[in-house]
Design a protein around this nucleic acid. Sequence first.
DNA 1: ACCTGAACACCGTTCAAGT
DNA 2: ACCTGAACACCGTTCAAGT
Lengths: 219, 219
Amino acid sequence: MAAKPPYHHGNLKPALLEAALQLISEVGPAAFTLREVARRAGISHNAPYRHFREKDELLAAIAAQGFERLGDALANPGPWKSGAGSGAGKPALERFQASGLAYVRFALNAPEHLLVMFDWPLTPAHYPNLAASAERAFSILVGLVQGAQTEGSLPPGDAMEQACIAWSMVHGVAKLAISHRLPFRNEAEALSFAARSIQALYDGMAPPKSGPKKRGGRG
Amino acid sequence: MAAKPPYHHGNLKPALLEAALQLISEVGPAAFTLREVARRAGISHNAPYRHFREKDELLAAIAAQGFERLGDALANPGPWKSGAGSGAGKPALERFQASGLAYVRFALNAPEHLLVMFDWPLTPAHYPNLAASAERAFSILVGLVQGAQTEGSLPPGDAMEQACIAWSMVHGVAKLAISHRLPFRNEAEALSFAARSIQALYDGMAPPKSGPKKRGGRG
DNA sequence: ACCTGAACACCGTTCAAGT
DNA sequence: ACCTGAACACCGTTCAAGT
């Protein structure tokens, strides 16, 4: 097998995306350069222009890929709490809360994706794929809210507003966690904090009233 | 008449910071260049190096300035809710919630500051002023949490954890709002949403226990 | 001290030319 | 079609030199 074929036979585009992600994970999106991506792919510095009109179009492709994967993660999240009592009581609520955890898990596992998706100034109007995949991910979240409303786990009312509030919560946790501004040493601690944040948003941070006991305690 | 004095007499550093902020607000931190800042200040392209060791040091100065102003805003926030019924019951709680609103207001009024503070990869260990001002701002938040705990408006327990949860909430709202990912057309709508998010975190998103539907406790 | 022009090694993007 | 080297106008940073 030739170690470095002089010509790529049509598989250059995915190879460029992969090399770009690897580079961003090393140097961040700000220091990311197209010429270095080309170097790592073993091609000349302007060959990428056969596949991407400009640098931002490559970044937009990465962002769109990220929103697709994020949408998949939201639609098919892992378990919410493995522990006691999560039997069959409130499946829609559990999926809603698990999707929040999946959001943070996605960020921790692919921080370079999240950075390009949210911290790079891409005009979404110019990249329809990006706008569509972002829209899809948000729609999935709204659907989870509506499911919990139907179930009675969330109050009736504006599902989009409730989705935006939940989104803000997990987005804040994700952004602060991957920029190492929260005091966590590993992914498990960060995910545990994310779960507590999601629970706090559902139950409220207020101290329990002297009357009826609050729901959803841990333990 | 002297529109452009050929020499700056010691006031060049603040002039550079101001020009830099203006430029960032126009093009974003990614497209921000030191040479353009120098051009706007009317000096040669390497004169800034008399005041900043490198480009990142200027950005670190901007970030530190931002954390100072953010800390001031948290310590002295505006009113929480001007309207009905917020009499004089819980001043510490109201200051805590108002500080969250002040966080979002700061972001909306100085988005270029927030971008540099949180979205530029500055190694904080290399810029002590930045680390100190960020630490101060966070300490103010923790103090507000402790005040609410003493008052009984927040449950006893880890004040830092509660501060991190509240921070994540308002940071998510701020970041999504200034990147125009939430459906708001003006600052008033965004601030109103921020207030509802803060209230939701305090009260919980769960429907009230005496709600319309079956709401059996768990088990 | 503070500022300057020239220089270096980069970068994004374009273009005429190769196979 | 897909790739190439040369070129252009930038950029961050350095340096010897001016006042």
